[in-house]
Design a protein around this nucleic acid. Structure first.
Lengths: 213, 213
DNA sequence: TGTACATCAGTGAACGCGCGTTCACTGATGTAC
DNA sequence: TGTACATCAGTGAACGCGCGTTCACTGATGTAC
Protein backbone atom coordinates (compact mmCIF):
# COMPACT_ATOMS: atom_id res chain seq x y z
CA UNK A 1 0.00 0.00 0.00
CA UNK A 2 2.92 2.31 0.48
CA UNK A 3 3.70 4.39 -2.62
CA UNK A 4 0.93 3.38 -4.98
CA UNK A 5 1.92 4.19 -8.56
CA UNK A 6 -0.18 6.99 -9.95
CA UNK A 7 -2.92 6.08 -12.38
CA UNK A 8 -1.72 6.04 -15.98
CA UNK A 9 -2.86 8.92 -18.17
CA UNK A 10 -4.42 6.62 -20.75
CA UNK A 11 -7.44 4.47 -19.91
CA UNK A 12 -5.94 1.43 -21.54
CA UNK A 13 -4.52 -0.96 -18.96
CA UNK A 14 -0.80 -0.41 -18.67
CA UNK A 15 1.00 -3.56 -19.83
CA UNK A 16 3.07 -5.35 -17.25
CA UNK A 17 6.18 -4.78 -19.25
CA UNK A 18 6.76 -1.15 -19.85
CA UNK A 19 8.64 -1.16 -23.13
CA UNK A 20 11.23 1.48 -22.46
CA UNK A 21 11.24 2.17 -18.77
CA UNK A 22 14.81 3.42 -18.91
CA UNK A 23 13.81 6.37 -21.07
CA UNK A 24 10.58 6.86 -19.17
CA UNK A 25 12.50 7.19 -15.90
CA UNK A 26 14.90 9.74 -17.34
CA UNK A 27 11.96 11.74 -18.71
CA UNK A 28 10.16 11.52 -15.39
CA UNK A 29 13.27 12.83 -13.69
CA UNK A 30 13.44 15.78 -16.07
CA UNK A 31 9.78 16.56 -15.45
CA UNK A 32 10.39 16.56 -11.70
CA UNK A 33 13.39 18.85 -12.10
CA UNK A 34 11.24 21.27 -14.07
CA UNK A 35 8.17 21.24 -11.91
CA UNK A 36 9.46 20.59 -8.41
CA UNK A 37 13.17 21.31 -8.44
CA UNK A 38 16.32 19.37 -7.72
CA UNK A 39 15.50 18.70 -4.08
CA UNK A 40 12.43 16.71 -5.13
CA UNK A 41 14.45 14.44 -7.41
CA UNK A 42 14.31 11.15 -5.53
CA UNK A 43 14.30 7.64 -6.90
CA UNK A 44 10.88 7.03 -5.43
CA UNK A 45 9.42 10.20 -6.91
CA UNK A 46 10.79 9.29 -10.31
CA UNK A 47 9.27 5.84 -10.14
CA UNK A 48 5.95 7.28 -8.95
CA UNK A 49 5.88 9.69 -11.86
CA UNK A 50 6.74 6.98 -14.36
CA UNK A 51 3.85 4.94 -12.96
CA UNK A 52 5.85 1.99 -11.70
CA UNK A 53 6.68 0.66 -8.28
CA UNK A 54 9.62 2.25 -6.52
CA UNK A 55 11.65 -0.90 -6.86
CA UNK A 56 11.30 -1.07 -10.63
CA UNK A 57 14.10 1.44 -11.38
CA UNK A 58 16.60 -1.01 -9.95
CA UNK A 59 16.08 -3.16 -13.03
CA UNK A 60 17.63 -0.33 -15.08
CA UNK A 61 19.88 1.65 -12.74
CA UNK A 62 22.30 0.29 -10.20
CA UNK A 63 21.44 3.05 -7.76
CA UNK A 64 20.25 6.60 -7.52
CA UNK A 65 23.53 8.07 -8.75
CA UNK A 66 23.28 6.06 -11.96
CA UNK A 67 19.93 7.71 -12.67
CA UNK A 68 21.39 11.13 -11.90
CA UNK A 69 24.23 10.39 -14.29
CA UNK A 70 21.77 9.52 -17.06
CA UNK A 71 19.91 12.77 -16.42
CA UNK A 72 23.12 14.78 -16.43
CA UNK A 73 24.16 13.07 -19.64
CA UNK A 74 20.91 14.15 -21.25
CA UNK A 75 21.69 17.71 -20.23
CA UNK A 76 25.08 17.68 -21.91
CA UNK A 77 23.50 16.22 -25.00
CA UNK A 78 21.08 19.14 -25.09
CA UNK A 79 23.91 21.62 -24.71
CA UNK A 80 25.96 20.14 -27.49
CA UNK A 81 22.93 19.81 -29.73
CA UNK A 82 22.39 23.53 -29.35
CA UNK A 83 25.97 24.32 -30.23
CA UNK A 84 25.92 21.99 -33.17
CA UNK A 85 22.76 23.61 -34.48
CA UNK A 86 24.52 26.95 -34.37
CA UNK A 87 27.51 25.50 -36.20
CA UNK A 88 25.37 23.82 -38.82
CA UNK A 89 23.60 27.05 -39.68
CA UNK A 90 26.89 28.90 -40.01
CA UNK A 91 26.68 31.49 -42.76
CA UNK A 92 30.17 32.96 -42.75
CA UNK A 93 29.65 35.43 -39.94
CA UNK A 94 31.62 34.14 -36.92
CA UNK A 95 30.26 36.84 -34.61
CA UNK A 96 26.72 35.72 -35.35
CA UNK A 97 27.80 32.12 -34.79
CA UNK A 98 29.02 32.90 -31.29
CA UNK A 99 25.91 34.87 -30.49
CA UNK A 100 23.66 32.04 -31.54
CA UNK A 101 25.61 29.45 -29.59
CA UNK A 102 25.84 31.56 -26.45
CA UNK A 103 22.20 32.59 -26.56
CA UNK A 104 21.31 28.93 -26.86
CA UNK A 105 23.40 28.01 -23.85
CA UNK A 106 21.94 30.80 -21.75
CA UNK A 107 18.43 29.92 -22.81
CA UNK A 108 18.99 26.32 -21.82
CA UNK A 109 20.28 27.34 -18.41
CA UNK A 110 17.37 29.72 -17.90
CA UNK A 111 14.85 27.04 -18.82
CA UNK A 112 16.60 24.23 -16.97
CA UNK A 113 18.18 25.70 -13.87
CA UNK A 114 17.60 22.59 -11.80
CA UNK A 115 18.81 20.33 -14.56
CA UNK A 116 22.04 22.30 -14.63
CA UNK A 117 22.31 21.77 -10.92
CA UNK A 118 22.41 18.01 -11.40
CA UNK A 119 25.07 18.44 -14.07
CA UNK A 120 27.31 20.94 -12.32
CA UNK A 121 26.82 21.21 -8.63
CA UNK A 122 28.86 18.25 -7.53
CA UNK A 123 25.90 15.97 -6.81
CA UNK A 124 27.83 13.34 -8.69
CA UNK A 125 31.26 13.05 -7.22
CA UNK A 126 33.04 10.96 -9.83
CA UNK A 127 32.29 11.51 -13.46
CA UNK A 128 34.78 8.75 -14.21
CA UNK A 129 32.32 6.20 -12.85
CA UNK A 130 29.90 7.06 -15.64
CA UNK A 131 31.72 6.79 -18.97
CA UNK A 132 28.69 7.81 -21.03
CA UNK A 133 28.35 10.97 -19.00
CA UNK A 134 32.02 11.78 -19.43
CA UNK A 135 31.69 11.21 -23.17
CA UNK A 136 28.64 13.48 -23.41
CA UNK A 137 30.39 16.23 -21.46
CA UNK A 138 33.43 15.90 -23.66
CA UNK A 139 31.38 16.03 -26.82
CA UNK A 140 29.84 19.34 -25.74
CA UNK A 141 33.32 20.65 -25.07
CA UNK A 142 34.59 19.44 -28.43
CA UNK A 143 31.73 21.27 -30.12
CA UNK A 144 32.89 24.49 -28.51
CA UNK A 145 36.43 23.73 -29.69
CA UNK A 146 35.08 23.28 -33.20
CA UNK A 147 33.34 26.62 -33.02
CA UNK A 148 36.59 28.27 -31.99
CA UNK A 149 38.36 26.68 -34.93
CA UNK A 150 35.79 28.15 -37.29
CA UNK A 151 36.27 31.56 -35.69
CA UNK A 152 40.03 31.19 -36.13
CA UNK A 153 39.75 30.11 -39.73
CA UNK A 154 37.58 33.07 -40.60
CA UNK A 155 39.86 35.54 -38.88
CA UNK A 156 37.79 36.52 -35.87
CA UNK A 157 40.14 35.29 -33.17
CA UNK A 158 43.86 34.62 -32.81
CA UNK A 159 45.41 31.34 -33.89
CA UNK A 160 46.01 30.20 -30.33
CA UNK A 161 45.17 26.79 -28.93
CA UNK A 162 41.43 26.39 -29.63
CA UNK A 163 41.06 24.01 -26.68
CA UNK A 164 42.17 26.77 -24.39
CA UNK A 165 39.97 29.34 -26.09
CA UNK A 166 37.01 26.98 -25.83
CA UNK A 167 37.60 26.53 -22.15
CA UNK A 168 37.76 30.26 -21.52
CA UNK A 169 34.61 30.89 -23.51
CA UNK A 170 32.78 28.14 -21.69
CA UNK A 171 33.93 29.48 -18.34
CA UNK A 172 32.69 32.96 -19.08
CA UNK A 173 29.31 31.88 -20.37
CA UNK A 174 28.85 29.31 -17.66
CA UNK A 175 29.72 31.81 -14.93
CA UNK A 176 27.48 34.44 -16.46
CA UNK A 177 24.50 32.17 -16.65
CA UNK A 178 24.95 30.50 -13.29
CA UNK A 179 25.31 33.77 -11.41
CA UNK A 180 22.28 35.29 -13.06
CA UNK A 181 20.11 32.19 -12.88
CA UNK A 182 21.14 31.30 -9.35
CA UNK A 183 19.77 34.67 -8.27
CA UNK A 184 22.53 35.25 -5.77
CA UNK A 185 21.95 38.90 -6.25
CA UNK A 186 19.69 41.00 -8.42
CA UNK A 187 22.10 41.53 -11.28
CA UNK A 188 19.71 43.57 -13.39
CA UNK A 189 19.19 46.02 -10.56
CA UNK A 190 22.89 46.23 -9.78
CA UNK A 191 24.24 46.62 -13.31
CA UNK A 192 21.27 48.33 -14.91
CA UNK A 193 21.36 45.85 -17.79
CA UNK A 194 19.06 43.02 -18.73
CA UNK A 195 20.20 39.51 -19.51
CA UNK A 196 20.53 40.04 -23.25
CA UNK A 197 22.60 43.17 -22.79
CA UNK A 198 24.87 41.43 -20.29
CA UNK A 199 25.26 38.52 -22.66
CA UNK A 200 26.12 40.81 -25.54
CA UNK A 201 28.64 42.69 -23.41
CA UNK A 202 30.30 39.43 -22.40
CA UNK A 203 30.50 38.22 -25.98
CA UNK A 204 31.99 41.53 -27.12
CA UNK A 205 34.57 41.33 -24.35
CA UNK A 206 35.34 37.73 -25.16
CA UNK A 207 35.90 38.40 -28.84
CA UNK A 208 38.05 41.43 -28.12
CA UNK A 209 40.07 39.37 -25.64
CA UNK A 210 40.73 36.66 -28.19
CA UNK A 211 40.95 38.79 -31.30
CA UNK A 212 43.68 38.20 -33.82
CA UNK A 213 46.31 40.92 -33.40
CA UNK B 1 19.10 8.78 24.28
CA UNK B 2 18.75 9.60 20.63
CA UNK B 3 21.51 11.86 19.34
CA UNK B 4 23.72 12.22 22.40
CA UNK B 5 25.95 15.30 22.02
CA UNK B 6 29.56 14.34 21.59
CA UNK B 7 31.86 14.72 24.60
CA UNK B 8 33.46 18.16 24.76
CA UNK B 9 37.11 18.34 23.87
CA UNK B 10 38.10 19.93 27.17
CA UNK B 11 37.77 18.01 30.44
CA UNK B 12 36.13 20.95 32.18
CA UNK B 13 32.37 20.52 32.40
CA UNK B 14 30.73 22.44 29.62
CA UNK B 15 28.61 25.19 31.12
CA UNK B 16 24.90 24.98 30.57
CA UNK B 17 24.94 28.24 28.69
CA UNK B 18 27.24 28.10 25.76
CA UNK B 19 28.31 31.71 25.42
CA UNK B 20 28.22 32.08 21.68
CA UNK B 21 26.36 29.15 20.25
CA UNK B 22 25.40 31.11 17.15
CA UNK B 23 29.03 31.37 16.07
CA UNK B 24 29.77 27.84 17.24
CA UNK B 25 27.01 26.48 15.03
CA UNK B 26 28.24 28.36 11.97
CA UNK B 27 31.76 27.09 12.61
CA UNK B 28 30.48 23.54 13.08
CA UNK B 29 28.67 23.85 9.76
CA UNK B 30 31.85 24.97 8.03
CA UNK B 31 33.77 22.07 9.55
CA UNK B 32 31.16 19.63 8.27
CA UNK B 33 31.30 21.16 4.80
CA UNK B 34 35.06 20.71 4.79
CA UNK B 35 35.25 17.23 6.18
CA UNK B 36 32.06 15.56 5.02
CA UNK B 37 30.64 17.65 2.21
CA UNK B 38 27.45 19.54 1.55
CA UNK B 39 25.22 16.48 1.67
CA UNK B 40 26.20 15.92 5.30
CA UNK B 41 25.21 19.43 6.31
CA UNK B 42 22.11 18.78 8.41
CA UNK B 43 20.86 20.71 11.41
CA UNK B 44 21.26 17.68 13.61
CA UNK B 45 24.84 17.08 12.48
CA UNK B 46 25.70 20.71 13.13
CA UNK B 47 24.26 20.54 16.64
CA UNK B 48 26.05 17.26 17.30
CA UNK B 49 29.35 18.77 16.23
CA UNK B 50 28.81 21.86 18.35
CA UNK B 51 28.17 19.59 21.31
CA UNK B 52 24.59 20.62 22.00
CA UNK B 53 21.25 18.90 21.65
CA UNK B 54 19.67 18.97 18.23
CA UNK B 55 16.92 21.30 19.43
CA UNK B 56 19.34 23.95 20.68
CA UNK B 57 19.93 25.56 17.26
CA UNK B 58 16.30 26.64 17.22
CA UNK B 59 17.15 29.20 19.91
CA UNK B 60 19.36 30.93 17.31
CA UNK B 61 18.00 30.04 13.89
CA UNK B 62 14.39 29.97 12.80
CA UNK B 63 14.99 26.91 10.67
CA UNK B 64 17.60 25.09 8.65
CA UNK B 65 17.61 27.63 5.84
CA UNK B 66 18.48 30.40 8.29
CA UNK B 67 21.60 28.45 9.27
CA UNK B 68 22.48 27.89 5.62
CA UNK B 69 22.09 31.61 5.01
CA UNK B 70 24.48 32.40 7.84
CA UNK B 71 27.00 29.95 6.41
CA UNK B 72 26.63 31.41 2.92
CA UNK B 73 27.04 34.88 4.34
CA UNK B 74 30.32 33.83 5.94
CA UNK B 75 31.47 32.62 2.53
CA UNK B 76 30.80 35.96 0.87
CA UNK B 77 32.60 37.69 3.70
CA UNK B 78 35.64 35.51 3.02
CA UNK B 79 35.52 36.33 -0.67
CA UNK B 80 35.31 40.05 -0.15
CA UNK B 81 37.98 39.95 2.53
CA UNK B 82 40.29 38.38 -0.04
CA UNK B 83 39.53 41.01 -2.62
CA UNK B 84 39.95 43.80 -0.10
CA UNK B 85 43.31 42.41 0.94
CA UNK B 86 44.43 42.56 -2.66
CA UNK B 87 43.16 46.13 -2.97
CA UNK B 88 44.82 47.22 0.26
CA UNK B 89 48.18 45.95 -0.84
CA UNK B 90 47.90 47.72 -4.19
CA UNK B 91 51.27 48.98 -5.29
CA UNK B 92 50.44 50.75 -8.55
CA UNK B 93 50.46 47.67 -10.78
CA UNK B 94 46.85 46.94 -11.78
CA UNK B 95 47.74 43.69 -13.53
CA UNK B 96 49.28 42.38 -10.33
CA UNK B 97 46.20 43.53 -8.44
CA UNK B 98 43.92 41.48 -10.64
CA UNK B 99 46.17 38.46 -10.40
CA UNK B 100 46.20 38.60 -6.62
CA UNK B 101 42.43 38.99 -6.37
CA UNK B 102 41.68 36.23 -8.87
CA UNK B 103 44.21 33.84 -7.37
CA UNK B 104 42.58 34.45 -4.01
CA UNK B 105 39.12 33.71 -5.36
CA UNK B 106 40.26 30.53 -7.07
CA UNK B 107 42.12 29.41 -3.99
CA UNK B 108 39.03 29.93 -1.88
CA UNK B 109 36.92 27.90 -4.26
CA UNK B 110 39.51 25.14 -4.38
CA UNK B 111 39.69 24.98 -0.58
CA UNK B 112 35.96 25.38 -0.01
CA UNK B 113 34.17 23.65 -2.85
CA UNK B 114 31.28 22.55 -0.68
CA UNK B 115 31.01 25.94 0.96
CA UNK B 116 30.65 27.46 -2.51
CA UNK B 117 27.88 24.97 -3.17
CA UNK B 118 25.84 26.37 -0.30
CA UNK B 119 26.43 29.89 -1.61
CA UNK B 120 25.77 29.31 -5.27
CA UNK B 121 23.88 26.17 -6.08
CA UNK B 122 20.39 27.35 -5.37
CA UNK B 123 20.03 25.58 -2.02
CA UNK B 124 18.63 28.87 -0.77
CA UNK B 125 15.87 29.94 -3.05
CA UNK B 126 15.31 33.51 -1.93
CA UNK B 127 18.25 35.64 -1.00
CA UNK B 128 15.78 38.43 -0.25
CA UNK B 129 14.60 36.56 2.82
CA UNK B 130 18.05 36.94 4.34
CA UNK B 131 19.05 40.60 4.25
CA UNK B 132 22.44 40.03 5.85
CA UNK B 133 23.27 37.51 3.19
CA UNK B 134 22.21 39.86 0.42
CA UNK B 135 24.34 42.60 1.98
CA UNK B 136 27.38 40.34 2.21
CA UNK B 137 26.99 39.23 -1.42
CA UNK B 138 26.62 42.82 -2.51
CA UNK B 139 29.68 43.90 -0.55
CA UNK B 140 31.79 41.31 -2.35
CA UNK B 141 30.45 42.58 -5.65
CA UNK B 142 31.15 46.19 -4.70
CA UNK B 143 34.74 45.24 -3.90
CA UNK B 144 35.13 43.92 -7.42
CA UNK B 145 33.66 47.15 -8.76
CA UNK B 146 36.19 49.09 -6.70
CA UNK B 147 38.98 47.01 -8.17
CA UNK B 148 37.75 47.80 -11.66
CA UNK B 149 37.70 51.50 -10.85
CA UNK B 150 41.33 51.31 -9.78
CA UNK B 151 42.20 49.55 -13.02
CA UNK B 152 40.37 52.25 -14.95
CA UNK B 153 42.07 55.06 -13.07
CA UNK B 154 45.49 53.62 -13.75
CA UNK B 155 44.83 53.10 -17.42
CA UNK B 156 44.59 49.31 -17.63
CA UNK B 157 41.01 49.06 -18.81
CA UNK B 158 38.54 51.23 -20.70
CA UNK B 159 36.42 53.82 -18.93
CA UNK B 160 33.23 51.82 -19.33
CA UNK B 161 30.70 51.15 -16.60
CA UNK B 162 32.75 49.46 -13.83
CA UNK B 163 29.65 47.66 -12.53
CA UNK B 164 29.37 45.90 -15.85
CA UNK B 165 33.09 45.16 -16.00
CA UNK B 166 32.94 43.77 -12.48
CA UNK B 167 30.11 41.51 -13.41
CA UNK B 168 31.93 40.17 -16.47
CA UNK B 169 35.09 39.58 -14.50
CA UNK B 170 33.21 37.80 -11.76
CA UNK B 171 31.40 35.64 -14.30
CA UNK B 172 34.60 34.55 -15.96
CA UNK B 173 36.42 33.72 -12.75
CA UNK B 174 33.39 32.07 -11.21
CA UNK B 175 32.82 29.93 -14.27
CA UNK B 176 36.48 29.03 -14.50
CA UNK B 177 36.69 27.93 -10.89
CA UNK B 178 33.39 26.12 -10.76
CA UNK B 179 34.04 24.09 -13.89
CA UNK B 180 37.49 23.07 -12.75
CA UNK B 181 36.57 22.43 -9.13
CA UNK B 182 33.33 20.64 -9.96
CA UNK B 183 35.41 18.14 -11.92
CA UNK B 184 32.85 17.81 -14.66
CA UNK B 185 35.66 16.87 -16.92
CA UNK B 186 39.40 16.55 -16.57
CA UNK B 187 40.31 20.03 -17.74
CA UNK B 188 44.03 19.63 -17.26
CA UNK B 189 44.03 16.56 -19.48
CA UNK B 190 41.84 18.20 -22.13
CA UNK B 191 43.60 21.53 -22.39
CA UNK B 192 47.11 20.49 -21.45
CA UNK B 193 47.33 23.33 -18.92
CA UNK B 194 47.31 23.36 -15.15
CA UNK B 195 45.07 25.54 -13.06
CA UNK B 196 47.53 28.39 -12.73
CA UNK B 197 48.14 28.51 -16.47
CA UNK B 198 44.42 28.49 -17.18
CA UNK B 199 43.89 31.25 -14.66
CA UNK B 200 46.64 33.35 -16.20
CA UNK B 201 45.24 32.80 -19.67
CA UNK B 202 41.80 33.91 -18.52
CA UNK B 203 43.16 37.02 -16.84
CA UNK B 204 45.13 37.93 -19.95
CA UNK B 205 42.03 37.48 -22.08
CA UNK B 206 39.94 39.49 -19.65
CA UNK B 207 42.33 42.42 -19.61
CA UNK B 208 42.67 42.40 -23.37
CA UNK B 209 38.90 42.32 -23.67
CA UNK B 210 38.48 45.34 -21.42
CA UNK B 211 41.59 47.22 -22.38
CA UNK B 212 41.44 50.95 -23.02
CA UNK B 213 41.52 51.52 -26.78
C1' DT C 1 1.72 -25.59 -34.19
C1' DG C 2 2.01 -26.50 -29.48
C1' DT C 3 4.27 -26.80 -25.17
C1' DA C 4 7.88 -26.76 -21.44
C1' DC C 5 10.98 -23.88 -19.50
C1' DA C 6 14.51 -20.32 -18.78
C1' DT C 7 14.81 -15.52 -18.61
C1' DC C 8 13.47 -11.08 -17.85
C1' DA C 9 10.75 -6.98 -15.84
C1' DG C 10 7.96 -5.31 -12.49
C1' DT C 11 5.52 -5.87 -7.58
C1' DG C 12 4.72 -4.88 -2.83
C1' DA C 13 6.07 -5.53 1.73
C1' DA C 14 9.68 -4.70 4.71
C1' DC C 15 14.27 -2.96 6.57
C1' DG C 16 16.67 0.68 9.05
C1' DC C 17 17.76 5.27 8.90
C1' DG C 18 18.21 10.16 9.80
C1' DC C 19 15.94 14.09 9.01
C1' DG C 20 13.33 18.78 10.51
C1' DT C 21 10.49 20.36 13.84
C1' DT C 22 7.71 20.73 18.21
C1' DC C 23 6.98 20.70 23.07
C1' DA C 24 6.94 20.60 27.97
C1' DC C 25 10.70 20.77 30.80
C1' DT C 26 14.80 22.44 33.64
C1' DG C 27 18.95 24.71 34.71
C1' DA C 28 21.27 29.21 34.69
C1' DT C 29 21.29 34.22 34.71
C1' DG C 30 20.45 38.74 35.99
C1' DT C 31 17.57 42.35 37.85
C1' DA C 32 14.31 44.85 41.15
C1' DC C 33 13.56 45.67 45.59
C1' DT D 1 23.77 42.12 50.82
C1' DG D 2 20.14 38.90 50.15
C1' DT D 3 16.20 37.09 47.91
C1' DA D 4 12.09 36.47 44.75
C1' DC D 5 11.11 36.18 40.22
C1' DA D 6 11.05 36.92 35.22
C1' DT D 7 13.69 35.74 31.40
C1' DC D 8 16.59 33.23 28.67
C1' DA D 9 19.25 29.01 26.73
C1' DG D 10 19.59 24.36 26.34
C1' DT D 11 17.44 19.36 27.10
C1' DG D 12 15.50 15.05 25.68
C1' DA D 13 11.62 12.60 24.23
C1' DA D 14 8.48 12.38 20.65
C1' DC D 15 6.08 13.32 16.07
C1' DG D 16 5.60 12.01 11.25
C1' DC D 17 7.95 11.60 7.18
C1' DG D 18 10.14 9.96 3.02
C1' DC D 19 14.17 8.15 1.67
C1' DG D 20 17.41 4.24 -0.60
C1' DT D 21 17.73 -0.40 -0.85
C1' DT D 22 16.68 -5.49 -0.46
C1' DC D 23 14.03 -9.57 -1.17
C1' DA D 24 10.98 -13.25 -2.26
C1' DC D 25 7.47 -13.11 -5.39
C1' DT D 26 4.74 -13.17 -9.88
C1' DG D 27 3.37 -12.03 -14.41
C1' DA D 28 5.00 -11.73 -19.22
C1' DT D 29 8.04 -13.02 -22.96
C1' DG D 30 10.46 -15.67 -26.13
C1' DT D 31 13.00 -19.74 -27.52
C1' DA D 32 14.10 -24.82 -28.18
C1' DC D 33 12.22 -28.82 -29.42
Amino acid sequence: MDDAPESPTSDAPRPYHHGDLWQALVQAGLAILHEEGASALTLRAVARRAGVSHAAPYRHFADKDALLAAIAEDGFNCLSAGIRTAINSYNGDPVALIHRAVDGYIQFVADNADHMQVMFSGLLKCYEDYPNLAIAADRAYQDVVKMMQICQRDGLIALDDPKQQAFMAWSLVHGLSSIVIGQQFPVAEKTGLDMQQLTDACIAMLIRGMRAP
